[in-house]
Nucleic acid binder design. Structure first.
Lengths: 213, 213, 213, 213
DNA sequence: CATGAATGAGGGTTCATTCAT
DNA sequence: CATGAATGAACCCTCATTCAT
């Protein structure tokens, strides 16, 4: 009984979070009304208040949860990259593709959009979550690039800078093209950004000086 | 007499636009109430309706106007760049600084934030304005870079790509650092992004192949 | 010049009255906004205020004017009825048709609807106008019926009562059918009401006692 | 428990309907503001929206409800009329008095005024309700008159026509006198209309041909 | 006097939040 | 704890009316 009830409670908690992420991401904080969230989650409105206190509390919980999820994905993607690849260019393109996919696809897009749009409304919350995530991501990426430099595949003085610039080169254009998360991205834009971004990155940081294509 | 009438009407029109840009940018569309705009503009609320029809119409006018302003600034900045500079690196850094300043400073920041935050609410309006502006900016920049390539200062196969990547390299980090327009940018971040971005750009596209610093 | 200006002023006055009758009748007093009236009349809104003081004053002017018009029509119709007709039934049916037409057709309908709908809002104005008109109409009709009685075509003790009942018999059904002036009347309903109403009237007040058909 | 909840909800529902009938009838749809209704009903304004959706929904509910009530009263009155009365004239006068009372007294007056005044604003709703009620009333009345004809108290070829004309004869004058529901009716006018109306009706449709008094 | 523009006041509707069960 | 119902506070928008020309 207790287990069942607990389970049910956890289920509702999760259902509310999922519903809220969906609605918040689509409509923004101000335009989200809790009636809609409650209906989508299949609970009554006061239940939301029981679980999360108020609307802002629900939003914070949504952001924290979804950010953790997104962060874990990114860490996995970076970890899966070889430090001694047979084909460096291909390896970097795969990595870049995966990173962009984490940022732009499905839950990643929703998470990013929330952070971006509501940054002014919840400055502290959003700063903390975003900076934390970004810093961790860049640190992991810098670490991986440093290893590639150590193994001679790249020539880096400043791996942190290389990480930031690789991210910028491959993700900036998709970000803009998606309306900063408002629309689905055009895959062709992603492909071009990745290909050309890695190309330029290698032209600047590759093993031997070579002009970009 | 007619001039006086016209002037007064135009003054109120402008005052409303200015006030609305301020409030919209700070609070977003949904959280902006027209009472506040009216008070800030020094007009009565119905005057807003006389001029702009409704809240959405006011928003559209604000976005169009401020985008045009921002666009003109950017065009001036690009036009002011020499096509045969004594010091290429310095010239590009100056250009990059100015561009970032246009995007992030004052009205530029507000404009960007509006476009970004309300992209989901007014997809058509925002797409049109943003894509138009971005395309024009990138075209101008690509043209300038092509000239630099023609004069031998750069070696570019695809000036459009070079323009996109230069923008990405110098503006991505300030964008993120500002919370996408929600907070003032840290000048140090801008300086670093510009210096390092131009450095990498030159490493990839400079006259002779040279590794990034 | 003076004549021309005077004429123009009179024209505007009339145009406003016509436009206002139209809009008031269609939408009622509360739902009529003076912008619509002004546009329909081709004048600026303050001109209405110059001519009629305020919205209520305009309404009063409309009601008085249109009532006088309607009243004149009714008087003409009754006056045109023969006091010694060859075919009494036909003469009464013609009279009845004309009366119903005055009440239900075009301006008559608008006038009636105004009086009816706004009776609670302007009790004094409407009472005065309506009672005056109705009394005058019934008096004229009673006089005509009394003449028909004097010439032996009818047998009436109380011409006033006969007038009221004739009006009731022929106009009640069309009134209801038109939604009390809200919709155009079905001509078939008018025809039936007139035929049957006159028939019953003659059965009760005709020269010799005869049952209704 | 459930009963208590239900009761409270039903109570509020009813209280809102009653208050709204009162205010709508007095002021018309456009001039009724829901604050007033809410205060009169002793509820908060949003409660009205919970129950009836919006102002028009409330109006529709009021009209439907009050029309049903009025209709039931009329049916009762007609059913209570004897089909083989000792004194036909007295029986008809009693019936007519009751009918006029249903139409003009208290809730009847309010109902009629609503239907009449808002016929142009809610044509479909009002048509449906009014025509339905009127048709049912006239059918019932025609049935009763047909029975009186079958028992030899009247001589009718067309009971439907007789019903319409009896209604017209006894109710037209009170209707006009009340300003179509805007003012209380003068009882003397009702008495006269009933007496004279029944008299004329009997002169036309009574057992033997006899002139009206 | 006619007009374009401006305004003060008010009403319908929504929504985050709280009772009562 | 979950729920149906209720509420107070706000906001968008309209419109009769008035200035200034």
């Amino acid at each position: 009984m207790v287990a069942a009830e607990t389970t049910r409670r956890v289920d509702k908690h999760r259902a509310i979070l999922d519903a809220a992420l969906d609605v918040f991401a689509r409509q923004g904080y101000a335009d989200t009304n809790l009636d809609e969230v409650a209906e989508l989650a299949g609970v009554a409105k006061p239940t939301i208040y029981n679980h999360f206190g108020d609307k802002a509390g629900l939003f914070a919980a949504v952001v924290e949860t979804s950010s953790q999820d997104a962060n874990k994905q990114v860490a996995d993607v970076i970890a899966a990259t070889s430090t001694d690849p047979a084909d460096l260019r291909a390896e970097l393109e795969t990595l870049a593709h995966s990173l962009v996919h984490c940022l732009q696809g499905g839950a990643g897009s929703a998470t990013m959009r929330l952070q971006l749009v509501e940054g002014a409304r919840f400055p502290e919350l959003i700063s903390r979550v975003r900076d934390g995530n970004r810093d961790r991501t860049l640190d992991l990426l810098a670490g991986k690039l440093a290893q590639l430099s150590a193994t001679g595949h790249l020539r880096l003085r400043d791996p942190g800078r290389a990480a930031r610039q690789l991210m910028a080169l491959v993700s900036d254009e998709p970000l803009v093209n998606s309306g900063f998360g408002a629309r689905p991205v055009d895959p062709a834009v992603v492909d071009r950004a990745v290909t050309e971004g890695v190309d330029t990155f290698l032209a600047a940081f590759g093993p031997e000086p070579a002009p970009a294509t």
